[in-house]
Computed example of a mutant assay.
Amino acid sequence: MATSNTTAAKAPIFNADNVQDQVGDLYVASEVWLHTHWLQILIAFAIGAVIVVALHGLRKLGERLCGKPLGTGELARRGWGTIVGRAITRTNNFFIVMLAAKLVVGYAGAPSQLATTVNFLWTVASVFQAAIWARELILGAIEHRTSSEHYSGEALLSAMGLIRLLVTVALFAVALVVVLDNLGVNVTGLIAGLGVGGIAIGLAAQGIFGDLFAALAIIFDRPFRRGDKISYGTTSGVIESIGLKSTRIRAFTGELRVISNKQLLDKEIQNTSVRDHIRIGFVIGAAYETPPETLAAIPAMLKEIVEAEGGKVARSGFESFGTSSLDFALQFDIPGDDWATAHPMRDRVMVAIMTRFAAEGITIPYPTQTTFTAAPDGSLVMPYAVPTRDTASPA
């Protein structure tokens, strides 16, 4: 028993006849448009030509701002003008042509078929051109900071390849989503897929990305730079290089310490290279037998000694009643941040104090203790000989 096929065969959506008909319709519409709007078209083409010439001139100006022609492989790092100039030079011809075409179509009332095509190409050109400009500005800012702040170690410069890749992928992924959304494509699933993929990659390489972002934070926040003397925890040293994952510090004791960028930024960092002075402080004791008028003159003596050596006194005065001495506190500042200069000055000040105290008859006592012993009858036995009347010399 034969069965009939009730489903009609579907004609293909795209075939040669359809394409030919659409091209024919576009040709007829364009011909009518040219006959009816020839004056507007001429004016729009003239303005578009001016815009094309102006944008090419602007691109030439951008090359001048860069200081070097494109293709040399180097960026003349002279500031933000150079960065903006390099972004301008990345303006492509397709964007310039589509900008002029968009103006012509919009001003001259082009037919819907032509306007739709131009709008589609303009959307693609403008979105991806914006991504190119953004990429050049971001990378230029990073390179500018790296150069001007002496962060240009070999490890960090090699990291620029990875940074450039990440920035490019992120920006062009966003541009692709924007273009598809403008074309009416449902991008919800694509965005969800990109989000899940990004989370998976981030979790797999969170240590690497954490150190990478920490390196970028060091570049832009500038807590220190190569050559600075820093202290963190119990370690002090000089920054030798700042890399993609770690920072190398030459400790003052000679060894090279390597610490990850993220771990370093989690600590309290003391940058001693930016201080303008070093403060020295110590306590000097004077014997209790020192006369009160001499004690009153000691702060002025200490200040005079420090100022004679080139220091600046922050505090000089009576501190406390010690167990064996009357204690005076001295704190003074030595200009600069160089301990090689501060230590010899401190030594000269201490020697000068000893010399001045000896000249003034001021004794710096040792820690002393006196023991009193009682006789069987309860009287005290003196710890030193007491002259009697019999042993005293005759008058």
Rank of each mutant, 00 (worst) to 15 (best):
P12Q: 01
A16F: 13
Q22H: 10
S30M: 12
V32R: 12
V32G: 14
H37R: 12
L39I: 13
I41L: 13
I41T: 13
A49M: 09
V53F: 13
V53P: 03
V53Y: 10
A54F: 07
H56K: 07
H56D: 01
R59L: 01
C66Y: 09
G67H: 05
P69C: 02
G71Y: 14
L75D: 11
G79M: 02
T82R: 05
A87I: 06
F94C: 02
F95A: 06
V97L: 13
V97I: 15
M98R: 02
L99Q: 00
L99R: 00
K102Y: 12
L103D: 03
A110Q: 04
S112C: 04
T116A: 15
T117W: 04
V118Y: 03
W122Y: 14
T123K: 03
S126T: 15
S126H: 06
F128A: 02
I132Y: 04
R135K: 15
L137Q: 04
L139W: 05
I142N: 02
S148N: 07
E149A: 08
E149K: 08
E149F: 15
H150M: 05
S152Y: 03
E154Y: 04
A155F: 03
L156A: 10
L162N: 02
L162R: 06
R164Q: 02
L165Y: 11
V167K: 02
V174Q: 03
V178S: 07
G189H: 08
I191C: 09
L194K: 00
G195A: 11
V196D: 01
G198C: 09
A204L: 15
Q206Y: 14
A217R: 11
I219Y: 13
I219H: 14
R222I: 07
D228N: 08
G233Q: 04
T235L: 10
E240F: 05
L244Y: 08
S246F: 06
S246K: 06
I249A: 04
I249S: 05
K262W: 00
L265M: 13
K267E: 11
E268M: 07
R279H: 01
E289A: 14
E293P: 07
E293W: 08
I298C: 12
I298D: 08
L302K: 05
K312R: 11
S316V: 11
S316W: 08
G317L: 07
F318Q: 03
G322I: 11
S325K: 00
F328V: 05
I334P: 05
W339K: 00
H343Y: 07
M345T: 14
R348K: 14
A359K: 10
A359D: 04
I364W: 01
F372N: 07
T373W: 06
T388W: 14
R389M: 07
P394A: 13
